[in-house]
């Protein structure tokens, strides 16, 4: 069964088309990722699906309930963690949790089994005001509060933005374990390398979806030849490589550059032409999600 169903959803703010006819669906118990930069429309989509905004066009259903007609029912069925820290900074950790429980008319102890694995990590600081928590701890508290009413669907808007790599990997571990409890999760992130932690992903840019698939399926959409190249003078290599026949793109990729080529590209010719840059290497490479994203952006 599809827990989330989105059909041609559009939303504009003045002249800005934040979402442009977006469609996708998420199955029961799936961990679905929206991957894209700022301005992709991720937050607008979350606000529509959590019934905080109405769409201009299109429809969407959460657990079979319509986001416009059935908004009151939806609100008690979903947990939402906005991108901006939205707990009460002057309440303690414990007070925040109790407050959110009472908003939803539940007792903390009723859903404690679900919240405990996360909340236990911050429980030693339960008397501390939320404002005095570190970034990673704030996220854990926000996630606890979003789960306190035992939602069937969890919406997480950029939960890993601005927190360090270790806290990020802890957060993904938590999501994986929530998934095993049957909770459907829609999560957004600007970090492309987090795509592989999702069951399926949608690559989003400027209000549109560029592609939807499993992470390996998305990789399979890359339709050109990709190489990793390097030389002693990396900066000169960038400019020189772009002038070689058959080179569609050449861009920095960590310590190396990635080169996208079409059928006109000849490895021998490339080596001969650019040998002078010193220690030239040219190695066929599997694309990453970022390569695919850039490839799809150009279409």
């Amino acid at each position: 069964m599809n827990v989330i169903e989105v059909n041609s959803l559009s939303k504009s703010f003045g002249k800005t088309k934040a979402l442009d006819s977006v469609s996708f669906s998420v199955e029961q118990g799936e961990l679905f990722g929206l991957i894209g930069p700022d301005g992709a429309g991720k937050t607008t989509l979350f606000r529509l699906l959590t019934t905080l905004l109405n769409p201009d066009e299109g429809t969407a259903k959460i657990e079979g309930l319509d986001i416009v007609k059935d908004y009151i029912k939806i609100r008690s069925r979903v947990g939402y963690m906005p991108g901006r820290f939205s707990l009460y900074p002057d309440l303690t950790v414990e007070e925040n949790l109790t407050f959110f429980a009472s908003l939803f008319g539940v007792k903390v102890k009723d859903s404690y089994d679900l919240v405990a694995p996360i909340y236990k990590q911050i429980e030693p600081f339960k008397k501390r005001q939320a404002r005095n928590l570190s970034g990673g701890m704030k996220q854990k508290l926000a996630l606890s509060c979003a789960l306190i009413h035992h939602p069937g669907v969890l919406f997480l808007d950029e939960p890993t933005t601005g927190i360090d790599a270790l806290s990020r990997s802890e957060l993904w571990d938590m999501l994986k374990s929530l998934k095993t409890k049957g909770i459907t999760i829609l999560v957004s992130t600007p970090y492309m390398d987090e795509a592989f932690l999702c069951d399926r992903i949608a690559l989003c840019n400027e209000g549109r979806i560029l592609g939807i698939d499993t992470p390996p399926g998305i990789i399979g959409k890359f339709d050109s030849q990709l190489y990793t190249i390097s030389a002693d003078n990396m900066f000169a290599l960038l400019g020189a490589a772009r002038k070689i026949e058959g080179v569609l793109e050449c861009y920095p990729f960590g310590q190396t550059h990635h080169l996208v080529a079409d059928e006109r590209f000849n490895e021998e010719h490339f080596r001969e032409k650019l040998e002078y840059l010193g220690n030239l290497t040219l190695i066929p490479t599997e694309p990453t999600i970022e390569d695919v994203f850039m490839n799809l952006m150009k279409k």
């Binding site: 894209g36 930069p37 700022d38 992709a40 933005t161 601005g162 600007p190 492309m192 840019n205 990396m234 900066f235 960038l238 861009y251 920095p252 990729f253 970022e290 994203f293 850039m294 952006m297």
Partner: peptide, 21 residues
Amino acid sequence: TGGVDPVTRRQFWEMIYEAAE
């Protein structure tokens, strides 16, 4: 480069390289 799309992020790094060069 927080929150920037991958194409722009690369253009940004190219500017950094150029400045360092």
